[in-house]
Design a protein around this nucleic acid. Structure first.
Lengths: 107, 107
DNA sequence: CTTCTTTACGGCCAGCGTAATTATG
DNA sequence: CATAATTACGCTGGCCGTAAAGAAG
């Protein structure tokens, strides 16, 4: 399970085909198709119905799509929230180490 | 950014050291330390304060921890929710393809 | 010296991309 | 034949684990 698999899944779910999804995700169809397969294997339930017209979302896929979007959004929100603390100190907190770290030249 | 990085981060945040975290996550310290570094680089904010006693969570880390737990929980919930559709059909729905897929012997 | 984190080095698995195959209308 | 997904094959990159180094009490 990986975040990329979730992104690929959303792309396929939203476009209805691995071709459009591969363009959206900037990868070729084979890797994308494999990741979708791997994702389905991991959740243990087929998320799509393969047809000659493309990829049709199944009920489990619809449910998973909502969760996938939520997770992806949460990941972005986590980064934004953490960045919101850049240079901040916890005013009124008893945590002294909230002060900026010493200039120990990391890197 | 990966789910493993999130798991490692939670382990370090909860144990306060890379040693205990590495035991908890079943990996050695170096890979874990590298992933934490990579995570901090990706979010663009130092999440921990390195001390000779271990890893101290910084305010940004506290915030990120809450999000990380939520994300990890959401991932698990997504799988459980999708599995809840196993063998189900959308009763009353117009979606015929909710029936089980044909036995095409994939894999 | 002891404890803890980080950097260096070597080997392995996973994932990507191109080309070929199968299924449908 | 045209379209769409999947499988086969070779290669590169990232990650892990062991060993060594730097920092603090």
């Amino acid at each position: 399970m990986s975040l990329d698999q979730l992104r690929y899944f959303v792309a396929v779910a939203e476009t209805g085909s691995t071709h459009a999804a591969s363009v959206r995700a900037c990868v070729s169809q084979p890797p994308l198709s494999r990741q979708i397969r791997a994702l389905e294997a991991e959740v243990g339930v087929p998320l799509f119905q393969r047809t000659s017209r493309g990829m049709l979302l199944r009920p489990a896929g619809v449910t998973f799509l909502q969760h996938a979007r939520s997770i992806l959004g949460a990941v972005d929100a986590a980064v934004v929230a953490a960045r919101g603390h850049a240079g901040h100190v916890a005013a009124g907190s008893a945590l002294e180490w909230t002060e900026a770290p010493p200039a120990d030249g990391r890197g």
